[in-house]
Design a protein around this nucleic acid. Structure first.
Length: 617
RNA sequence: GGUCCCGUAGCUCAACGGAUAGAGCAACUGCCUUCUAAGCAGUAGGUUACAGGUUCGAGCCCUGUCGGGAUCACCA
């Protein structure tokens, strides 16, 4: 069944061609939904045609409207207000449309189109558990993957684990020195948190050592000789911290030693590294499971950190890179508005971007995707611009399919999350908290009959997670978002549970239809569609377009807003009109079918956001 | 300082260049004898940071200004 929008676009273009003898691109014809205060379902913007028509907007609108009414069977009537042509679509069209939705559970989704896309949406470090920032990253990425699948792409969901380097060595060293052989099991702590605790302890010990060192004569001497004019001691030492760690700290020396042993594959170090990383993976797995996400392919930095050196050779041969006297290799991107950038150190070791170049190439060989989407916070915008620019210059065949899905940082009402100040919101804590609050509010509301304890718990989990996920995913990715923990667990208003509740209402109706064996075949005979019903139909009709747009823009918030809007309209419909007790059998059947469609679309839309629907609440 | 992003109701967020800028939260007021009130309806709240420009029409596009953030490492 064809889309009414494109039908109207074509017809308007045809009308303009016939009446004014001027060709118009149908795709450029603007069709909007008519605002509630006016009569009509869709409105044609006729201003672009007034020049062609050489008439006043109202006159042109009337002529086009007249043509549409005569030539397009779906157009029942029209009216003209201030140059806007409002069209009313026939009930027959809406009846057919409703029927087509009811009989098509996959409404809104496209068949497979043969396009393969990779979405990398998690890249955690293995020294600490996941936090709120990771949650936004993960939810955005997961949702985009679902949306891309819905428009027909084959999606490969990947994770790249930063499992090596200084950070994990700190945790390792800390556990080795002070861990006393404890394990997550013996300590009764979730394994990734266990590892994170040793990292925190390391930082603490290091901080204490640094403060003690600052009292030494050596420190005073360094301060006096190196301080900037008028620089306070406190500020100087804050800036000096990294240098101190690298050049003066005993712990720092030990960490570097451990890193070297790791690079040399020293067996004991490798064993320790494996042990601790496996603890972390075990913990991550639980968190991912709680968040309801999964990956098709895992990459480890320990496997990829040496990649990219061939590319450097290749780039040198192609003249994209150049070598400096000291032997370091650079790329000059100043003509593209960027800087010069090192791609290989003088000693031949890689830098961050070298590794990313290598990984991109390796992954393309392996996966052969058309597009590669990296879901990474916007602090790395520059890095990805540079990375993509280099790959373009190298003539990599997939270069034009690279996309950085950049999202704004998550802040608390009190400002940025800071590890040092302990304001980081832990992912597991947050998940537990939203479910606890859902349970609390449910119990205030009283028991629901006929629900088993397991089912009840399952529904509470869905409601709690629905609140959390919707709160995060409803915000446009690009915007930095303020995360207010209290608001995130709200269950009323513009929230996940509000949408779930409309679904639960529908679910209740459908169960009754089943039980009472209601005959809905008379739905098609219903006449006189009400505005509350029409609103729903128009909204439903837009679902495929919204998915399409969300896919094009990598923007799940469009789906979230769509679902909220549809749920809101359904609640109004529910309140204003009787469904089971409708005046006629036709109205009852129609409203039940309409409800079924709404439920189906809401479920399908929320699924694209990674949000599940409870049966009861 | 260069580059990029963001400034919309007290707060959190919407609005393919289209009609009178919309929701939720918070505040106040109504609506459960009737399909689940996690709902519905109403009141109040705005010079869309500011100044210009482009056009039939600008929150959206262009220029400038002011605020906020990110980034400009041989760190990752």
């Amino acid at each position: 069944m064809s889309n009414i929008i494109s039908t109207l676009q074509n017809a308007v273009a045809q009308a303009v061609g016939q009446i004014y003898s001027e060709a118009t691109d149908p795709a450029k014809v603007q069709i909007n939904t008519t605002p509630p205060d006016f009569t009509g379902d869709y409105s044609v913007v006729v201003f672009p045609f007034v020049k062609i028509a050489k008439k006043a907007p109202d006159a042109a609108a009337a002529e086009i409207g007249d043509y549409l009414q005569k030539n397009v069977p779906e157009v029942k009537s029209f009216n003209v207000v201030k140059g806007f042509l409002n069209l009313e679509i026939s009930d027959v069209y809406w009846q057919n449309f409703l029927q087509s939705v009811v009989t098509n559970p996959g409404f809104g989704r496209q068949p497979r189109n043969g396009r393969k896309v990779m979405v990398e949406y998690s890249s955690p470090n293995t020294n600490k558990p996941l936090h709120l920032g990771h949650i936004r990253n993960i939810l955005l990425g997961w949702s985009c993957a679902q949306i891309l699948e819905a428009v027909g792409c084959e999606v490969v969901k990947t994770q790249i684990v930063n499992d090596r380097g200084v950070a994990i060595c700190k945790s390792m060293l800390s556990w080795e020195k002070w861990g006393d052989g404890k394990t997550p099991e013996s300590a009764g702590i979730k394994p990734d948190h266990f590892v994170g605790d040793w990292y925190v302890l390391f930082e603490q010990k290091s901080k204490e050592a640094y403060e003690a060192w600052q009292q030494s004569d050596e420190a005073k001497r360094i301060f006096e000789t190196n301080k900037k004019a008028n620089q306070a001691e406190k500020e100087f030492f804050r800036e000096f911290k990294n240098k101190w760690f690298n050049e003066h700290s005993a712990l720092g020396a030990e960490v570097r030693e451990m890193l070297l042993k790791w690079e040399a594959h020293e067996p004991a170090t490798m064993a320790l590294w494996n042990k601790m990383n496996n603890w972390v993976y075990e913990g991550f797995e639980q968190t991912y499971k709680d968040l309801g996400v999964s990956f098709d392919r895992l990459y480890h930095e320990s496997d990829t950190y040496l990649l990219g050196k061939d590319i450097v050779e290749e780039g040198l041969a192609k003249g994209v890179f150049f070598k400096k006297d000291d032997g370091s290799v650079w790329v000059d991107l100043t003509d593209a508005g960027y800087d010069q950038k090192v791609v290989l150190r003088a000693d031949g070791t890689s830098v961050y971007i070298t590794q990313d170049l290598g990984t991109a190439q390796m992954r393309h060989k392996e996966l052969g995707c058309e597009r590669y989407v990296y879901v990474v916070a916007d602090e790395q915008n520059y890095h990805f611009q540079v990375l993509f620019e280099i790959l373009r210059r190298l003539g990599e065949p997939y270069a034009k399919g690279l996309h950085h899905l950049s999202y704004g940082l998550v802040e608390l009402p009190t400002g940025r999350m800071k590890t040092r100040e302990g304001t980081v919101v832990d992912a597991d804590d947050l998940v537990a908290e939203v479910i606890r609050l859902a349970a609390e509010q449910a119990s205030e509301r009283g028991e629901i009959e006929g629900v088993s304890p397991q089912e009840k718990q399952e529904n509470l989990r869905k409601v709690g997670m629905g609140a959390l996920k919707f709160f995060i995913v409803k915000v446009h990715p690009k915007r930095k978002m303020i995360f207010n923990p209290e608001e995130s667990v709200d269950l009323q208003g513009q929230t996940g549970p509000y949408i779930q509740y409309s679904y639960v209402r529908i679910n209740g109706l459908m169960q009754r239809v089943e039980k009472e064996n209601v005959d809905v075949s008379k739905a098609g005979a219903y006449t006189g569609i009400q505005t509350q019903e029409k609103e729903l139909l128009v909204a439903l009709h837009d679902f495929p377009n919204v998915i399409q747009k969300a896919a094009e823009e990598y923007d799940p918030s469009l789906i979230a807003n769509f679902c909220y809007d549809l749920a809101k309209k359904y609640h109004r419909f529910w309140h204003d009109l009787s469904i089971f007790n409708a005046d006629t059998a036709e109205a009852k059947a129609f409203r039940l079918q309409l409800s079924r469609s709404v439920g189906q679309v809401l479920k399908s839309g929320m699924e694209l956001l990674g949000i599940e629907m409870p049966n009861r609440m």
